[in-house]
Amino acid sequence: MLITFTGVILLTVLALPLAAGIVALLARRRTRAGEDHPWRRSVAEVGVVHGTVPWVWMILLPGGDEATSRVSLVPLVDLVTIVGDEPVLAVRQIVGNLLVFAAFGALAPLRFAALASIPRVVALAAAGSAAVEIIQYTLALDRVSSVDDVLLNAAGAGVAALVSRRWWAPERVSSR
């Protein structure tokens, strides 16, 4: 039996207590080890995984009968087509694509200092998105692998990184 988008969302919500428990266990372990910012690091790690994996899982679900597996490499063609044909579906598609790597964009710079740069976050999200699109096409999931999806996924990560930017650098502890 194949799982549906609704099933993935339900499982994601049901897994929230497990994710919270993992955060608490990681933070407690890090606190005992004397690591800096144990809660911040733990929330960031679990949040990146819990906020990204379900979206990627949904992308890799088989598509419907209305589309055949194909590649669209011309930027914005798919977006313009879907907006013109089905505006409501277009909004869902655009918002969904913006959210795929948003958790990564918002939380990865909190955990990994090397990613504390919006261009780096966008580049890594674009690479991850391109990899997912290639996998989607390679597995012949009856979906469209589109450069527009890569652009929107990377843009979503960039916007989320921009929103979370003020929290990237850990607060300095005064030496009083």
Score class of each variant (00 low, 15 high):
138 T>M: 12
9 I>W: 14
68 T>D: 08
127 A>K: 04
164 S>A: 15
140 A>S: 14
3 I>W: 14
118 I>A: 07
123 A>Q: 05
170 P>A: 12
123 A>V: 05
173 V>K: 13
5 F>N: 14
73 L>T: 01
167 W>P: 01
50 H>K: 02
53 V>H: 04
33 A>Y: 07
158 G>W: 03
64 G>I: 10
64 G>S: 15
146 S>G: 13
167 W>C: 08
27 A>P: 07
102 A>N: 06
30 R>M: 14
23 V>G: 02
150 V>A: 00
152 L>F: 06
144 V>Y: 00
33 A>H: 11
25 L>T: 11
65 D>A: 15
158 G>A: 02
116 A>N: 08
143 R>V: 05
98 L>R: 05
154 A>F: 00
46 V>P: 02
14 L>G: 08
47 G>F: 01
143 R>K: 10
170 P>K: 09
150 V>E: 04
120 R>M: 08
7 G>N: 10
58 M>G: 02
161 A>N: 05
109 P>M: 10
147 V>M: 02
101 F>Q: 02
63 G>L: 11
132 V>K: 04
56 V>C: 02
17 P>C: 14
42 S>R: 03
78 D>G: 03
28 R>S: 13
171 E>F: 11
52 T>N: 01
70 R>E: 10
66 E>Q: 12
107 L>Q: 02
172 R>D: 09
93 Q>S: 14
60 L>A: 06
157 A>Q: 02
44 A>H: 04
137 Y>L: 12
147 V>K: 00
157 A>C: 09
19 A>C: 15
170 P>R: 09
12 T>C: 08
129 S>C: 08
147 V>L: 03
91 V>R: 03
133 E>Q: 08
148 D>I: 01
142 D>T: 11
87 P>V: 03
167 W>S: 09
16 L>H: 10
78 D>N: 09
8 V>T: 11
67 A>F: 15
1 M>P: 13
157 A>S: 06
32 R>H: 14
160 A>N: 03
40 R>M: 09
159 V>R: 05
49 V>H: 00
53 V>T: 06
98 L>T: 07
147 V>T: 03
115 L>E: 06
64 G>M: 08
36 D>A: 15
126 A>V: 05
45 E>R: 09
44 A>C: 07
27 A>S: 14
162 L>P: 05
76 L>A: 07
30 R>N: 14
97 N>Y: 01
110 L>K: 02
122 V>R: 03
4 T>V: 09
3 I>F: 13
64 G>V: 08
166 R>K: 14
13 V>A: 15
145 S>L: 06
